[in-house]
Measured scan of single mutants.
Amino acid sequence: MASDGVVVEIGKVTGSVGTTVEIPVYFRGVPSKGIANCDFVFRYDPNVLEIIGIDPGDIIVDPNPTKSFDTAIYPDRKIIVFLFAEDSGTGAYAITKDGVFAKIRATVKSSAPGYITFDEVGGFADNDLVEQKVSFIDGGVNVGNATPTKGATPTNTATPTK
């Protein structure tokens, strides 16, 4: 695992066909100046998982989280898009600690492993708008004895992609 920078880890949970599971997305290594904004994309298989919603985690402190935390689910493109932009203008609602960034709610549709993997990152910046190093650890849903650990090695991303 990367020793510096922010680590975004997609949790690994267990479920069975027809059940709804909650998959946490963790941030670790949050910089001392916090995270003022970030955007990134995960990939998944809508034939295996139906993403039914995404909720902000406990490290989102904006009293009205829909102003700073936004997501979009595109089953036709097989992606989930995340956007966080601190909304106070003063840094008061920045992410300042490690913990759960988001909770992905999904219904298991198939007995195949439900991988959720890193696809791309736009950027991560602290309260001074300084770009942060970030790496990703894939996860998803274990169905029966299947284990979604494909790509469990962190993917280092030093520069934003478009």
Rank of each mutant, 00 (worst) to 15 (best):
L49M: 02
D62K: 14
P113V: 07
F118S: 07
I59H: 14
V141T: 12
A146I: 12
I51F: 08
E22T: 08
D138P: 11
A72L: 00
G57H: 04
P160N: 13
V7G: 04
L83V: 01
V8R: 00
F101H: 06
F40H: 08
D39Y: 01
T159E: 15
G122A: 00
D138A: 11
S3N: 02
D58G: 06
R43L: 09
R77Q: 06
D39F: 01
S3D: 03
A158P: 11
Q132H: 02
A92F: 08
P63H: 08
T153I: 08
E120C: 02
G139T: 02
Y44N: 04
T71I: 05
G114R: 11
L49A: 13
G34F: 04
V8T: 14
L83F: 02
K150T: 10
D76H: 02
A85Q: 01
E22Y: 06
K12F: 15
E120G: 03
N37I: 01
V7C: 09
P24G: 06
D87W: 15
G114C: 06
D55W: 14
A94V: 05
P65A: 11
T19L: 10
F101N: 11
P113G: 11
D87L: 15
V21K: 13
V134W: 00
V21W: 04
D98A: 12
I80H: 10
G144S: 12
P46R: 08
V13Y: 08
I104H: 05
D58T: 08
Y74C: 00
E131R: 01
P31A: 04
T14H: 10
S110L: 12
S16P: 10
D87N: 14
K150W: 15
V143P: 12
A125C: 06
K78Y: 14
V8W: 01
S3L: 05
T155D: 06
T96W: 10
E131G: 06
D4Q: 09
Y74L: 01
G99Q: 14
E131T: 05
V13S: 12
I137Y: 13
E131C: 01
V6L: 08
T117E: 04
K150E: 11
K78M: 04
G140Q: 14
A106L: 10
R77T: 02
D62C: 15
K97I: 14
S16C: 04
D55R: 08
P154D: 14
K133W: 13
N37F: 00
